[in-house]
Design a protein around this nucleic acid. Structure first.
Lengths: 347, 347
DNA sequence: ACTGCGAGCACAATCGATTGCGCACACTTG
DNA sequence: CAAGTGTGCGCAATCGATTGTGCTCGCAGT
């Protein structure tokens, strides 16, 4: 192992004090009236010794790490992956590194991560919380370290956050389905109790209500955002006597599971069944049946999140805004109109 | 801002020395013969004060950060995203945090990141290098900090690494195309000079050669792994007089671009043109035309990478293995057989 | 009463960088 | 020659935790 040169080594070798070395290498030579000769000397010695500043020591002294934590449920999911990427990019531009944590939608794991990030003394945190319970985040706020919530937020927490108008997205989509003549609209939800899910569900329900459609509780199914959930629930829905005419999947992974189930049963979209998805993804236009979706501005979310955090970082008393972004309804081919007939459609 | 309690505070309040407090909280009470009374007292005080250990200070003293860096070209690309996710998970299980960096296939940015990670004194590094040039990594190795290369590697670097047998994957796929009767097989390559690309290209070329097919240089096109590359090159290929009968896209994003171009021109896969892709992705089976692909074991790559790194971390002189994983050829519908006729296929 | 011993803990150096304060010297001015 | 004014830089504390070394008791033994 190579022993790294320290400021001390430089100082000794250059015959100056550590302070001088430090000041030169932090470009404060003129501020502290260090002569040009000394400056060049120190720089040269630093160069010769292959000096590599130690940010751990620096962090201890300065009580800052130039690092922010990011907590997400599933960073391989394209939705979160895009957010993470953008957060990373913006963070780097602002001079921060990013410690990424995956909670796998597990509250215990999430708490572990929060704990670790706290001990690591990250300067700030961007989180997409797992759960319904905000207590871990209450604890975080106690520490005084800035926090920004993304995608999912808590109403009882006064914290800057950026979310999509899930209600509007779901409402618009469901309305579209109703207007297309669908009357049995299934909703495969994600994790109940999460902000995201509740809002989408509310949008769905309100739209049904406003279109005077009967709310069949058996059509609201599912329990988390994973692919398996989409698969299983779709299978079950397809087994129903009075099968829905359309499935509204509340996340991209649920959609993936739904697709598997649908094609496995030999059905065609939208001929036999319509499908609509919350979350767009790159390949959605090229599917066997190009998917009609509610698209969230994921990259924008990441960017806004990091910028909100930066505001808190430079000014602890900055306003704690909640930014609400509009999702976009993208019409493709996966929803077929239904003939609006007075009675049933039995051939 | 809440002032965090330190060991000192605890020691003072408990009426013991810092050392004792430290030892108790590190579960070394018995090792250092601390009485049970003292132990409970210290623990209680720590609890009361809401003690949060400072890993920065700890890191300085112990010369270790329990953090590893990860450098990838594009963490939102499903291929890398899967790797990152798995690396993160395994890292956490082994007690490490992960600092994630995105290079965007930009060597300068990559170097910046390496520099930063070095200053941050990460304990190890997992990298998917951008370039053809290994000099930055040579510099890294000088520091003595363990390094593992993933997906792309350098032959002039004695470093543990995990790669896919790109040659075999490309060879098998190209052979399949040849066996299906294709004689004009286009190859849209990624970034020339990268290990990945060179190997795939070599596999493609060798397969052509072994099947006694003419190598038309105009059919080897492209210059990076981005979607735009796939789009543009496909457009150009489609404009050729003697258009290829199949396109072999050497990454998922290139495939995405190709799909755009193909459907934009109103062509059908595989009727008008066959398509084959390096990289599988979740939605590949559900595309308009389910894609035949060479699948890489991405999650496995991430896991192996982190485990290799862990080996280096606990034993600096551990063997520097190169792990080569087999890709899997997955046959779906996007390659149509071509009638092998003696002459041209003009009508 | 004096020695010996182990239990229980404290001292102080250390990791590497930052920074407020102040010192020493040179040179100018009255 | 004394006082005044800069210039150029060093001293030493500090951030919070870890740890090798060694001190100080109380008690048993003779």
């Amino acid at each position: 192992m190579v022993i790294a040169a320290t400021l001390n080594d430089i100082a000794t070798k250059a015959g100056v004090s550590v302070s001088t070395a430090s000041r030169v290498l932090n470009n404060k030579a003129s501020e502290y009236r260090i002569s040009e000769d000394t400056e060049t000397l120190v720089r040269k010695v630093a160069q010769d010794l292959g000096y590599r500043p130690n940010h751990v020591a620096r962090g201890l002294r300065l009580q800052t790490t130039n690092t922010v934590g990011l907590v997400a449920p599933d960073i391989s999911n394209p939705f979160f992956a895009s957010i993470v990427k953008r957060v990373q990019t913006v963070a780097h531009d602002l001079g921060y590194s990013l410690v990424v944590c995956n909670t796998n939608e597990d509250s215990e794991l999430e708490e572990e991560h929060l704990n670790l990030l706290d001990r690591k003394r990250v300067d700030g945190l961007i989180a997409m919380p797992v759960g319904q319970d905000s207590s871990e985040y209450h604890a975080w706020i106690e520490t005084g370290v800035p926090l920004v919530l993304v995608d999912r937020c808590f109403d009882d927490l006064d914290v800057p956050s950026v979310v999509v108008d899930n209600y509007a997205g779901a409402y618009q989509a469901t309305s579209f389905l109703a207007d297309s003549g669908h009357r049995r609209i299934a909703f495969i939800q994600g994790l109940p109790g999460t902000y995201t899910n509740s809002e989408r569900l509310r949008g769905y329900r309100d739209a049904l209500h406003d279109h005077e459609l009967y709310q069949d509780d058996r059509l609201v199914v599912g329990g988390d955002f994973r692919e398996e959930n989409g698969y299983i629930e779709t299978k079950l829905l397809l087994g129903l006597d009075d099968r829905p005419t359309v499935i509204f999947a509340s996340s991209d992974l649920i959609t993936l599971g739904a697709l598997k189930a649908i094609y496995e049963d030999g059905l065609e979209i939208p001929r036999d069944l319509s499908l609509l998805s919350f979350d767009d993804f790159d390949f959605a236009p090229f599917l066997k049946c190009p998917l009609t979706v509610v698209r969230q501005p994921r990259e924008l979310m990441g960017e806004v999140a990091m910028k909100l955090l930066a505001q808190q970082l430079e000014n602890a008393s900055a306003e704690k805004k909640r930014v609400v972004l509009r999702p976009e309804f993208i019409l493709r081919d996966s929803v077929a109109p239904v003939n609006v007939e007075p009675a049933s459609e039995t051939t």
